[in-house]
Amino acid sequence: MNPDSYLYLSAILFSLGALGVLIRRDAIVVFMCIELMLNAANLAFVTFSRMHGRLDGQIFAFFTMVVAAAEVVVGLAIIITVFRTRRSASVDDANLLKY
């Protein structure tokens, strides 16, 4: 197996995450799909790091994880706040800015 296969896998996982963001309505599931996309990008980072024989790619994957952790905390707090006021976690229901 050529190590390039990891890159193809990361492309597939990223597209699946994007598909989930586009077709799901539940805000939490949409958020999980975003996490999947971040993870796919991390896989590409690690693979490129191995390709170049340098650790910088791994450092970037590490920072992605840090940012993802911060993002999850704030995002979930936003989802909880929206749920409290609207009693719904569906992304279709939060449409006040549309009108």
Binding site: L9, E35, L43, V46, T47, R50, Q58, M65
Partner: peptide
């Protein structure tokens, strides 16, 4: 995959931070 590619630290962090902390946060919410 990370561990197989020589990124042992990232592999462990992935399990501890992602599956351990972030996914549990999701389940909590």
């Amino acid at each position: 995959f990370y561990m197989a590619q020589g990124a042992v630290f990232l592999g462990v962090v992935q399990i501890v931070v992602y599956t351990g902390a972030i996914m549990m946060l999701f389940l909590f919410v």
